[in-house]
Computed example of a mutant assay.
Amino acid sequence: MFDIGFTELLLVGLVALLVLGPERLPGAVRTTGLWVGRLKRSFSNIKAEVEREIGADEIRRQLHNERILDLEREMKQSIMPPATTTGSRDAGSEPAASSPAEPASVDSRGAPPEQTPEPPRPAEPAPRPDRSPEP
């Protein structure tokens, strides 16, 4: 930190001994050590707090960027819905319906089997115009 050698420390110690005297020198050194320790702890606490704030700001910035990317994806999906794949069927052909000549399958009671309805598909949420990104 400071470029202080052994000779400089010895000189400061001799001057302190002459000025304060042998009775008050140990108390002065102890008090000086306590104050230096308090300053070091204060600076380390301030440094840790600043590093936490910088980390929190970086996390906030990343979350904000992710929100913007999500909004951008939603806008693209609302403008151009994803293309559906038709598999082996042609785009213009429809599935073949059973002909009236074919018998419908029946259960033990002689009634046609019950059709289970497909569960409703969740609708895509429409982008809200009042939604603005948070800073």
Rank of each mutant, 00 (worst) to 15 (best):
L20Q: 03
E58Q: 10
G27R: 00
M80L: 07
N45V: 11
S99G: 13
R61I: 11
E74I: 04
P26F: 00
L14N: 04
P95I: 06
A48W: 08
P119N: 03
A126K: 06
P113K: 07
G92R: 08
K47R: 11
G92A: 12
E94S: 13
A48F: 14
W35V: 09
P125H: 07
P82D: 15
R24N: 01
R30G: 07
P117D: 04
V15R: 08
M1F: 15
S98E: 14
E49W: 15
L10R: 12
I59H: 09
K47M: 08
I79H: 12
I79D: 12
T116Y: 09
A101N: 05
S108C: 11
L71F: 00
L20H: 00
G110A: 02
A104P: 15
Q62L: 09
E102H: 06
W35N: 03
I46E: 08
L25Y: 02
S42K: 04
E94Y: 14
P112W: 00
Q62V: 09
V12E: 13
L18T: 04
A123C: 01
P82W: 04
A28I: 01
L17W: 11
E118V: 03
S78Y: 06
R131Q: 11
E114Y: 11
P135F: 14
R52G: 13
P122D: 15
S108K: 10
V106F: 04
R67D: 15
P122A: 15
W35G: 04
R73D: 00
R41S: 12
T86M: 05
P81S: 05
H64R: 06
E51W: 12
L17P: 02
E114R: 10
R73V: 02
A123Y: 00
G92H: 11
P117L: 00
D57A: 13
A91M: 08
A111T: 07
P129M: 05
A123F: 01
V29Y: 10
F2P: 10
S132K: 05
P22E: 02
P129V: 03
E118Y: 03
V19Y: 07
L69R: 09
E66A: 13
P95W: 09
E66F: 15
L63A: 09
A104Q: 10
V19T: 05
A16P: 01
Q77Y: 12
A126F: 12
N45C: 14
I54Q: 12
I59S: 08
E53I: 03
L71D: 00
P113Y: 13
L14M: 07
A83T: 02
P113R: 10
L20K: 02
L18G: 06
E58T: 05
E74A: 10
F6P: 02
P26Q: 01
L9F: 14
R121P: 00
A96H: 14
V12R: 10
E74W: 04
P119K: 02
P125N: 05
E72K: 04
R61F: 15
T85F: 05
E72Y: 12
R128S: 08
E49H: 11
L11S: 11
N65L: 06
S99I: 01
P120N: 01
L39A: 13
F2I: 02
G33I: 04
A111V: 11
P133S: 05
L14F: 06
R60K: 11
G13H: 08
R131V: 07
R41C: 06
E58I: 08
A97N: 15
P117N: 01
S98K: 13
P26M: 00
A126R: 09
A56S: 13
